[in-house]
């Protein structure tokens, strides 16, 4: 369970951005890839803990889950995988490991109040 240290990283990044802009953060928007190795529920729980006694206490973490997108060498197209247990093209079933998206762990935006 490394979600607490990830959550602390999120809080730190958000605080840093907020300080630079002199704003109060009410919500953090996070892009979370299916291959990031981070579990959403554990992260939501850890986020509350990580926010305690910081300017972000009481803020919300809004997680956008990003599915894995691969390039299918057969179709020559980008394809979204239905599951991380099966790395093959959902259209033609060709195996493919060329990951284009799905490893994101990114603080994408902040909801702020002046």
């Amino acid at each position: 369970m490394h979600e607490l240290s990830i959550a602390m990283g999120i809080v730190e990044a958000a605080m840093d951005e907020a300080r630079q802009r002199n704003v109060q953060v009410s919500a953090v928007h996070l892009r979370l890839g299916a291959l990031s190795g981070v579990v959403k529920d554990a992260l939501l729980f850890s986020y509350e803990v990580a926010c305690q006694d910081t300017p972000l206490e009481g803020s919300r973490l809004l997680i956008e889950e990003i599915p894995v997108m691969v390039f299918c060498p057969q179709c020559k197209e980008k394809r979204v995988l239905e599951s991380v247990q099966l790395f093959s093209c959902p259209e033609c079933a060709s195996p493919t490991g060329e990951v284009l998206q799905g490893k994101e762990l990114e603080v994408y935006a902040l909801e702020v109040e002046e």
């Binding site: 990044a13 802009r21 009410s26 990114e106 603080v107 994408y108 935006a109 909801e111 702020v112 109040e113």
Partner: peptide, 8 residues
């Protein structure tokens, strides 16, 4: 509240 993009 307003939304600002930070991408970190």
């Amino acid at each position: 509240p307003r939304l600002i993009e930070v991408r970190r």
